[in-house]
């Protein structure tokens, strides 16, 4: 990359989060993870189920206390935020949760769920303005006005997911952690939501951490992609580089498992299996820049090999 370094909005430095630390059932959900998210970009995080993606999102938002390492937001260490700065951070950084059912208060009407953040942050002058905002948000996510007075259980899975999206957008955040925001949606509404996210990215210079399993969508929407497995970040690079020139064997395996929407192709697709021994052999590995901006967790020899395998 030439010219000025883009501004870093979020910086994770050697982040660790261990559940049940020191006990027999210790889980290293985040195991020394370092990466930056630049202002205005969509950073896609993919990887095995249980690899720590949601935990990273929740830790950035201070919903978990990290075991070690640092998280900076706008250059400030978030662990030290207090008072006004903390409430500003709570408004600026929003999360769309993976489990919409569990994250929506079932006793509140949709209108009030969406407006909760507007109320807390006093973003509407009066009721008319509040209602107008809610209407606009409902429309934005493809729901209609009379949905406002209903309760979450009256909605389908995908409709509930969109309520969560509208709620996150309501407070004009700067940074959104979108945890599987579209997997419950049909492809047409996925397209609408993804188009909307991209539009907000440019218009409001929103920054996203986009966690998803649908790799073709991640590739399409993300500027850069990070690949996780067992609490570690294995590879990071531009969406094109990771998708078209994967380095790490896990990334290759993951890409080979993407189902293709073509019954003829699907009947013959081969899946590359991943041999996890390279994560358990105890060798020291670090992030090595194999191509400009494209890093892989490897030993020097492995990095050389990965590069040689590239065509």
């Amino acid at each position: 990359m030439t010219g000025k370094e883009p501004k870093k909005l979020v910086e994770l430095k050697d982040l660790q989060l261990y559940f049940n630390k020191g006990k027999a059932n210790e889980v290293r959900a985040i195991d020394h993870v370092t990466f930056d998210i630049y202002e205005g970009e969509i950073f896609g995080l993919v990887g095995e189920s249980g690899s720590g993606k949601t935990t990273i999102g929740r830790t950035i938002l201070k919903l978990h206390e990290q075991t070690g390492g640092e998280i900076l937001f706008n250059g400030e260490d978030v662990t030290h935020l207090k008072g006004k700065q903390l409430s500003a951070f709570r408004k600026d950084a929003q999360m769309i949760f993976q489990d919409p059912q569990a994250s929506l208060n079932g006793r509140m009407k949709v209108r009030d769920i969406i407006a909760e953040g507007i109320d807390i942050n006093k973003l509407a002058k009066n009721k008319t303005e509040r209602d107008a905002k809610v209407q606009e948000l409902l429309k934005l996510v493809g729901l209609n006005e009379d949905h406002a007075t209903r309760y979450p259980h009256e909605f389908s899975g995908g409709q509930r997911q969109r309520i969560g999206i509208a709620r996150a957008l309501a407070v004009d955040p700067k940074f959104i952690i979108a945890d599987e925001p579209i997997s419950a949606l049909d492809v047409s509404i996925q397209a609408q939501v993804v188009n909307l996210m991209k539009e907000l990215q440019t218009k409001h210079s929103l920054t996203y951490l986009f966690i998803a399993h649908d790799l073709s969508m991640v590739k399409y929407i993300s500027d850069r992609i990070g690949v996780m497995h067992w609490g570690k970040l294995l590879e990071i690079g531009s969406a094109d580089a990771v998708y078209n020139h994967p380095l790490h064997p896990y990334t290759k395996s993951l890409l080979s498992a993407i189902p293709v929407p073509d019954p003829e192709v699907e009947s013959v697709r081969q899946h590359i299996t991943y041999d996890t021994t390279i994560e358990t052999d105890g060798k020291a590995r670090q992030m090595i820049e194999a191509a400009p901006g494209h890093f892989v967790l490897a030993t020097e020899e492995e990095a050389a090999l990965y590069k040689a395998q590239q065509v």
Partner: peptide, 13 residues
């Protein structure tokens, strides 16, 4: 009903 949407593609497979 959407049995594999929250899963990565390898485990989905």
């Amino acid at each position: 009903d959407e049995p594999t949407t929250a899963l990565d593609v390898t485990i989905q497979a």
